[in-house]
Amino acid sequence: MAIQIIFNVLIAFMWMFLSETYDFVAFVKGLMIGAILLFFLRRFLPGKYYIVRVYKLIKLNFIFLRELIFSTFAIIALVYKPKMTMEPGIFKLPTELKSDWELSLLSNLISLTPGTLTVAVGDDNRTLYIHAMDLPDVEAQINDIKNTFEKAILEVTR
């Protein structure tokens, strides 16, 4: 994984020297040529082809943007409601993620989407305690997070 990125950057610099133009556009061109070369050489390099992960990362960003916009409108609808009828509460989210990096990414994404806020992380690093604005059904909420964010993060890191 890391060695592939280093190769790609090296190829980009080589391309800059070969074409004798030293600007950002030439660097990006070199990166693209490097990505194509690495695609043909992927059998001889360790790990999965890393552009796949870049693609999944972009996909994660789009999932996040969609959730952000939808849930902001849900919160705003609650703000302008004449009577406070929501049922807030703290629920437990068991997670399959292992490393600290994945866990902090998940909890930050959960905190960033309106309607859910990470209050605490369990001692075993396997559970997140999440405060939700409107919590009629705990199971539905857990499945929602598992199917969107957790799945997308697992695709990026594994």
């Binding site: 807030p88 703290i90 930050n108 209050v119 705990v138």
Partner: peptide
Amino acid sequence: APISGHMISRAAYNSGVDLWERSEKDHLS
């Protein structure tokens, strides 16, 4: 933004600020 939100809520919970009385569940306590 998420880090400040997390830290404020964590500090509030650890210093014993109660949830709203209409809150349904509290698995953390």
